[in-house]
């Protein structure tokens, strides 16, 4: 058992976790954060992607003890971010989903790409989104949605409402 202190979506959490506890389990089962999807459990599909200190990482391949002291952001946490909200609306506008299971992972990854480099070109966007799989195959619409939201990240619009 280890004590960890993490900031999840702006809320400080002080948890006691097992040494072998997987972050995906901690987020979904203990904290009820269900936008983080559990699918392959082996780091391939990317549906459990969360932002750890603004870097997309696959939570099924991370120990909860390893992220002690980190800031974790999931799709729920992005809801209050004005730029990310535009990105989410862009997903809806472009029909960038079918079943919607992968959407939170794509939104969090795309938010990290655009907020770390608002000048990301089309090729960089495609490349950085490679870590997430959409089994419905809406990649084209997803890329269009991200490209369309890019201008909003670029023009320095405020992050919060």
């Amino acid at each position: 058992m280890k004590e960890i202190r993490i900031n999840v979506n702006g809320v400080f959490r002080h948890l006691i976790v097992e040494d072998n506890e997987i972050l995906l389990d901690t987020l979904r089962t203990r904290l009820g954060i269900t936008s983080v999807k559990a699918a392959c459990w082996r780091g391939e599909c990317g549906l459990c992607t969360v932002l750890i200190d603004n870097k997309p990482m696959k939570s099924c391949m991370l120990l909860s003890v390893e992220v002690d002291g980190s800031e974790i952001l999931t799709a729920e946490g992005l809801y209050n971010n004005k730029r990310a909200r535009v990105l989410m609306e862009s997903f809806v506008k472009h029909g960038a989903m079918q079943c919607g299971f992968c959407t939170p992972a794509f939104v969090t990854t795309a938010h990290s790409v655009l907020s770390s480099n608002p000048d990301a070109d089309d090729q960089e966007i495609s490349e950085k989104l490679k870590g997430v799989i959409c089994r419905c195959g809406t990649y084209f619409q997803i890329k269009e949605a991200v490209k369309s939201a890019r201008a909003f990240y670029k023009d320095g619009s405020p992050e919060t409402f």
């Binding site: 280890k2 040494d19 072998n20 506890e21 997987i22 389990d25 089962t29 392959c40 459990w41 082996r42 120990l63 003890v65």
Partner: peptide
């Protein structure tokens, strides 16, 4: 906590 089988869980170990 997990679904139970391999892939979903890790064997017990001490973390240092």
């Amino acid at each position: 906590m997990s679904f139970g089988g391999p892939y979903f869980t890790l064997p017990k170990f001490k973390y240092l």
